[in-house]
Design a protein around this nucleic acid. Structure first.
Lengths: 195, 195
DNA sequence: ATTAAAATATACCGATCGGTATAAAGTTAA
DNA sequence: TTAACTTTATACCGATCGGTATATTTTAAT
């Protein structure tokens, strides 16, 4: 790992929460230099432009989510347990610890959908990948007889994602964990009723 | 209605979709003058600053939603029918007609939550008002025996809002009405199972 | 039609925007 | 240790940012 690679990672690490909170247009080069303690020359020595920093920051934020989810999924053997794991992972993102601005997929989807095609594309791929992951789980659950065969895996996946993302928006806006808990109780009931 | 009041409304009308699509930081004074054909002098003759335009634009977008919803609620007599009316109204926002950037509550919540307290407050109030409206409906439904008494009205309200807002995010990002329909089928099932 | 007031346009402000050319400093291999 | 190379800092660019003082035009009452 060269010095430049380390600096690149450092810049991404420091700016990722800022992009997640302020969005693409709301994050300035000045924000980036302030967060890193580096100068513009150094930023542009490691990235071609602000876009590249933003895209790398999204990847970093997303990877942070995905790795935590995959780790938690491994703690459960049943399909329902794995589906419920999403709830606990996302809860940990904004309960107790310092918030870094919520779910990067949701933030980027809303921030970039009408303005920044490259970021939008990344958010889209993240949602599709998430959907696919849940579909696979549900299909396994149906084969296992853990989930009733008349459920549409795609519909289950979309419903789970919608409730989590909608729940994040509401809970962060109202700043009430109780709201998150109520919504997630509905989601848990939905998941438990799948089979 | 004075000339200035008309101009004020005109400015709000023209800029509301821009703020909804690009967000607060992403919408510039130049965007505002371009959309209205007016000059900065005229804008600042009617508004103190960009904030005031943004706040008025949010109110405009919100009112547009609320009035459509209230109209649709009046078309239904049963509580479940009224709850299902939310689905059809929100569907009409991004199916068929030119999109103006999706749900203003969701957009503003994500755009402003970490950056713009005044806008954030407006989005918060809108969600709380929406929640309260659904709670009232559910409470009426319980009194009517249309909804089982063991349902928590607040939880139902939060669940409905989460699914709609999560559904909007996913459907707009993927640009697929089918996704909206699948999520809303889950929501319809949820509502029908309330009683 | 005249005039006072209200509304809009012009021209400008300093600050900040993203970005870059180039010099200085730091790193690494010989 | 030196020389080649990589990385970072300095100083600057034109463009755009939000905002304003003032002049011009438009409106509305007499």
């Amino acid at each position: 790992m060269t010095k430049a690679e380390k600096t690149r990672d450092f810049i991404v690490e420091r700016t990722a929460p800022i992009f997640n909170m302020k969005g693409y247009a709301g994050t300035s080069l000045n924000d980036i230099t302030a967060a890193t303690g580096l100068t513009k020359g150094s930023i542009y020595g490691n990235f071609a432009n602000k876009d590249e920093v933003a895209l790398a920051a999204f990847d970093h934020n997303l990877h942070h989510n995905v790795s935590q989810i995959e780790a938690e999924l491994n703690n459960h053997s049943s399909i329902k347990g794995k589906l419920l794991a999403y709830v606990s992972v996302y809860q940990s993102f904004f309960v107790g610890k310092i918030s870094t601005g919520g779910c990067p997929i949701l933030n980027t989807a809303i921030d970039a959908d009408d303005t920044h095609p490259a970021l939008r594309e990344k958010a889209l791929k993240a949602v599709l990948s998430w959907k696919k992951r849940i579909i696979t789980l549900v299909e396994e659950g149906i084969l296992n007889k853990e989930i009733k065969a008349d459920y549409n895996p795609e519909q289950v996946a979309l419903t789970v994602i919608a409730m989590i993302e909608g729940g994040i928006m509401i809970s962060r806006l109202t700043n009430k964990v109780e709201n998150w808990n109520l919504i997630m109780d509905s989601l848990k009931k939905y998941i438990n009723n799948l089979g």
